[in-house]
């Protein structure tokens, strides 16, 4: 176990140290102490190392992660795991706006709540939020899966493309072009797999599925009020 203390080590050195690890390295377990809300902690990691952040972080923690496992034992600021390519990011506390924004792959687990625009413009990432998500979550979401064990705020899935949304609790309102859809066996399987990987205690049958009505895929004057 290697340790980096942000009370005495600056951000550049923390990230440079983690980024310098190669897949050949045998130093695969790292701990970061005293993040105290710092921004851009553990960003751009592209080897399968494991990083535990003991405390809360600021903006863009685990940004563009590609293969690492990053576990934040605290809450995270805006844009956690933004544009993640692969790997796993786990947040024990809450996440601020834009969690998992534009993520292309990997798994983001938020054990608390996520605020607005969770999964905005997501492009393949899987996100499991054990609490609730705020307004405009999955806005313009293209691909991937958003699972919410709690409730969803206003305008869920606005201008949605092909991402799949599963919500166990209530949905305050659906955004433009987002509709409830039939839950088929393939969806229940997918959900069961994600819940298991996220360590979330919920039954797939308790969820409802939401997806794109695909009415905005080609401009149609009769839908102009939805633009």
């Amino acid at each position: 176990m290697q340790s980096l203390d942000m009370a005495t080590t600056d951000l550049r050195e923390v990230n440079a140290t983690l980024q310098a690890q190669t897949s050949a390295s045998n130093q695969t377990e790292w701990v970061i102490d005293n993040p105290r809300g710092a921004h851009a902690v553990a960003v751009g990691l592209d080897t399968p190392i494991s990083v535990t952040v003991r405390g809360s972080t600021g903006y863009y923690c685990a940004g563009m992660n590609a293969g690492a496992t990053i576990h934040v034992q605290g809450s995270v600021g805006p844009g956690v795991a933004e544009n993640m390519m692969s790997g796993t990011v786990i947040v024990d506390g809450d996440a601020s706006q834009y969690a998992g924004a534009t993520g292309h792959g990997g798994l983001l687990v938020i054990r608390g709540n996520a605020s607005s625009r969770c999964g905005i413009s997501m492009k393949g990432i899987d996100i499991v939020v054990q609490g609730s998500v705020g307004h405009m979550s999955a806005f313009m979401a293209q691909k991937g899966t958003l699972v919410v064990l709690g409730d969803a705020g206003d305008a869920l899935g606005d201008s949605l493309y092909e991402a799949r949304l599963f919500v166990r609790g209530s949905v305050k309102s659906l955004g433009a072009d987002c509709v409830e859809k039939e839950m088929r066996a393939e969806h229940l399987d997918r959900l069961a797999d994600l819940l298991e990987r996220a360590g979330a205690d919920a039954k797939p049958s308790e969820f409802r599925r939401y997806g794109s009505a695909r009415r905005l895929y080609h401009f149609n004057i009769d839908h102009a009020d939805q633009y």
């Binding site: 292309h104 413009s121 393949g124 293209q142």
Partner: peptide, 18 residues
């Protein structure tokens, strides 16, 4: 672009995470 083939693609006017 991670989009379905053949659909209109709308680009956002603001960045998604700032």
């Amino acid at each position: 672009r991670d989009l379905p083939v053949g659909i209109d693609q709308r680009s956002a006017c603001r960045h998604p995470d700032w």
